[in-house]
């Protein structure tokens, strides 16, 4: 699994790719939780871009739960965006779609995070959706 990170104004976008399973969830935890702590510290927002995630297991979902707790405790916001159809079903079956805000696209997630985040994203050359 590969994990990329980008900053758009007050919003951190974390983009894991591949499978988040029993083997790789520890990598996600090691990468994500410090980022969530930082974002929570400055009361920013965290967006998880899941467009490149093929699968997530219960262990991976637990990591998201911990990150969500961190963010909420600091009045920060967290959302997950661009789920594949399989991952969207896993979220629904596990009821994680009730735990985390799920946005259809990264644009939607950034718009919900802050106007500044969306503007920075667009300024970086990311086109608005057609």
């Amino acid at each position: 699994m590969h994990i990329a990170t980008q900053q758009f104004a007050d919003t951190t976008v974390v983009s894991p790719t591949g499978r988040i399973d029993h083997r790789s969830a520890a990598d996600l935890e090691a990468a994500l939780l410090p980022l969530a702590a930082e974002a929570a510290e400055r009361k920013g927002a965290l967006v998880l871009d899941f467009s490149g995630v093929d699968y997530i297991s219960s262990v991976g979902l637990r990591v998201l739960m911990i990150a969500a707790r961190q963010m909420r405790a600091a009045q920060g916001s967290i959302s997950v965006a661009a789920l594949s159809s399989v991952v969207a079903e896993i979220f629904s079956i596990s009821r994680f779609d009730k735990v985390l805000v799920v946005q259809s696209t990264l644009d939607d997630a950034l718009a919900q995070a802050s106007d500044a985040a969306l503007a920075a994203y667009r300024a970086a050359g990311r086109p608005p959706p057609a």
Partner: peptide, 8 residues
């Protein structure tokens, strides 16, 4: 339980 409930 659902997974979300079981771990929250």
């Amino acid at each position: 339980y659902s997974l979300a409930d079981a771990i929250s």
